[in-house]
Computed example of a mutant assay.
Amino acid sequence: MWDVHRARIHWPRLTPMPQAQVWLVRLPDDTQAVSPETQACLSQEEVQRARRFTQPRHAWRYMAAHAALRTLLAEALHCAPHALAWQTDADGKPHLPQHPLQFNLSHSDVWALVATHPTLALGVDLEIHQPWQDMDGLALGILHPDEASAWQQLPVATQAQALHAAWTRKEACLKALGTGLRLPPEQVVVGMAAAPSQGRWRQDGGHTVDWCDLPLPLPTPHSACLAWVQA
């Protein structure tokens, strides 16, 4: 069971990446199990992984998010969702070995984002805001020293929002690169602006990654970001 807002989401700041498409997906809540039709979209590996979750709602949301991803990719590639066979690279990023279509998935609580582009590697991250257990420790662990200094000078009332935004931007950039946390997040410099914005980060001796915040129509505070590697 999942509900996808199928209309392509447009923002003026996405104009440098005009062929990107982003879908917002509503996942099951704590009382909603996924349907047999949803499970039929998944690979056996995905079903087995879902069964390893200890909380049923986490399993349902994992299955619904992956079924939504498969359905959207299948529509683009004109095939059945369960017939899609993607591979993962050494860092775990999935790709379609027989097609240049790039895609990425992120989910948090009862929401998910799916992003695609015909050729450019991309990453998307969505975070529903939750209280930080050790906000100062997390900030020092993920922020570049210049970012940490700027963050400490912010009003206390805005620090949590700014940290959520920074983490989401960094996560999207890392997913676009496909490195995961093999590249420490403190090396990804995205600034501390709390308002929706866009930016560019140049990896030392490596790729250039553009990113933009995505202001989504959600009923709860959140941060979301799309990042892509320049050709």
Rank of each mutant, 00 (worst) to 15 (best):
P185C: 11
Q152P: 01
A166Y: 04
L183G: 06
Q187C: 10
Q159C: 03
L177R: 12
A193T: 14
Q152C: 09
A165G: 05
G180F: 04
P196F: 05
G191W: 05
E171D: 11
P184T: 08
W151F: 03
V188R: 11
A160D: 11
W151L: 00
L181Y: 01
E171S: 06
S197E: 10
L174Y: 09
T168P: 04
Q187R: 15
L183P: 01
R169W: 00
M192C: 15
W167C: 01
P196L: 06
R182N: 13
A166T: 14
T168G: 01
W167P: 00
E186Y: 13
T179K: 10
S197R: 15
E171A: 06
L163K: 06
V189D: 10
A176G: 03
P196E: 00
A195G: 01
R200M: 10
T179S: 15
H164W: 15
L154C: 07
A195L: 09
L154W: 03
Q153R: 14
A157H: 14
W151Y: 01
S197K: 01
Q198A: 14
A166K: 03
Q198I: 03
P184V: 06
L177F: 11
A150S: 07
A160T: 11
A194G: 01
T158V: 07
L154I: 04
A195I: 05
P185S: 10
M192Y: 03
Q159W: 01
G199A: 12
V189P: 00
A165L: 00
T179W: 13
P196N: 02
G191H: 08
R200Q: 15
Q152H: 13
Q159K: 12
P155D: 09
L154M: 14
A172Y: 06
Q161P: 00
G180R: 05
R169V: 01
A194C: 09
A160L: 03
A150I: 00
L163A: 09
A176R: 08
V188H: 10
L177D: 12
L163V: 09
T168F: 02
E186L: 07
R182T: 12
R182E: 08
T168A: 03
K175A: 12
A193M: 12
A162D: 04
Q153D: 11
M192R: 09
K175D: 13
T158G: 06
G199F: 07
L174V: 07
M192T: 15
